[in-house]
Design a protein around this nucleic acid. Sequence first.
RNA 1: UGCCCCCUAGUCUAAUGGCAGGACAGAUGAUUCUGGUUCAUUUAGUCGGGGUUCGAAUCCCUGGGGGGCAACCA
Length: 565
Amino acid sequence: MSEENNEEKKSVDFIREIINEHNKNGKYDSRVHTRFPPEPNGYLHIGHAKSICLNFGLAAEYNGRCNLRFDDTNPSKEEQEYVDSIKEDVSWLGFEWDEECYASDYYEQLYDWAVELIKKGKAYVCDLTDQEIREYRGTMGGGKEGTPPGKDSPHRDRSVEENLDLFTRMRDGEFEDGSKTLRAKIDMAHPNLNMRDPVMYRIQRAHHHRTGDKWCIYPMYDYTHGQSDSLEKITHSICTLEFENHRPLYDWYLDELDLYHPQQIEFARLNLTYTVLSKRRLLTLVMDKYVDNWDDPRMPTIAGFRRRGYTPEAIRNFCKRIGVAKADSRIDLALLEHCLRDDLNKRASRFMGVLDPLKVVITNYPEDGEDILEAVNNPEDESAGVRKVPFSRELYIEREDFMEDAPKKFFRLSVGREVRLRYAYFITCTEVIKDQAGNVVELRCTYDPETRGGDAPDGRKVKGTLHWVSAKHALKSEVRLYDRLFTVENPDAERDNWLNCLNPDSLEIKSEVFVEPAIAELKTGDFFQFERTGYFCVDKDTTAEKMVFNRSVGLKDSWAKIQNK
RNA sequence: UGCCCCCUAGUCUAAUGGCAGGACAGAUGAUUCUGGUUCAUUUAGUCGGGGUUCGAAUCCCUGGGGGGCAACCA
């Protein structure tokens, strides 16, 4: 055995441990068949990415299979748009599902099983209202004697014949929405509330995105999920922690119906600092227009990250690095950003763009002079080649790269100081032009023709290197800078106050941005780096007249750290 | 206060009864035509108490803390 193999055996997460054990004892004939089971009631987010990477990753690692299954049991909240977006996002992340399944394809089978349970005396039609069901179920905590037991429904002892008749008529549409339910007959005193005669079917006249108006009764998730896994011969049914208490119920259905048992394994869902990941809250952000849409680059949705300029590679790497465990945790957003930088540093072409322009006139450069300089596209990847960058007498540099009363640690431009313009010349600032209000509006500089390309033949060094663009060659474009959507690390802890923690500065639009002409070749979705400012991508709002760029993530900025001290 | 789950540096995660390690974040320095990258160094941890054991992050007991569950949602 190679060392590598030993290394791998050294450290596996608890899920892989369970699977290894199963493979050793032959529980599933060494089969590994997982599934990713979203409900199509919203867009996928980074938390789903964790689950996707886990389920599809497991299948790939163990030479198994992974289904994409839509748990579409609540037609009032589900839509085809969400089905489409989910498929697009899973594919974009780089995964291929073996079978595309829908819980709604099992409706007929589920119905037959419900009839079977009724015949066994294990299910009954109940006329209690939702309010009454809640009251009869009892509550958590309470008395010294333990959880107060629930009360039996008055309809609990209906005959099999009556239940069969009633359930058939429920399906036939004889009863009002919500007027009756089918319930499992388990134990109203069970310490696990999920086992106190849970609802299996409710009456709901809603148009289903796949079954249309065929049904007016719909199975509950809890009655559907376990059997769906069973039908698909799933071996390891991986889900999040909140379903742990439901596992006995899934097992109960499977046992009573004498069906194949997958092994359910629960793990802790992903939480991210400065982010909300609950579907309900994301829906609020979109519907109430706190963000533009599901793919707003500030959204933690897969679509949002894609538009923001995140790569599938970065997200997959992130999911690998956060691991999987049962302890609740909240991952530092900085780790996600690190994964993006790590990927893009190796792959993104560099360009120059000035976000906050300050005009510079090179006084000793010919009026109509022009020069074409050569720039390296990616210092981390020689195969990326070089490009041409035009230079002329009037340039733009970044406003923050000039300071009048510059401290020693400021390596950039100031009157009398010499810096390098990247891939161009050394320049020295000679004069500051201000408007009547005293704002710096222009810099006069001289250049040293001997330093063409960026090195001085006499060997002298400069501390700073600035990015720049030639004024007459520059393309005017728009840049959108993003910051965290929330001002607090854990918006969830704010309860109903969470919307008050939205970061008012999460979006900053720079509409007077000047970029080098080579940028024009880029297409929507392409990623690149603006040297010294960050990684960007071309937004879909780009038009023939104006390009629009999203900043995906900034570069690490040690100057900012020095300033903050 | 019923049931279930969890507790290792600031954060996340390893160590499966035998030297508490890695990553991110932080700090310091070197290199650098990006104050980027890279490299080196470095700060920092087993929730408390008791027990079993030659030996406990790990097993047991107990206390504490965190999370989940009372939709005809998933």
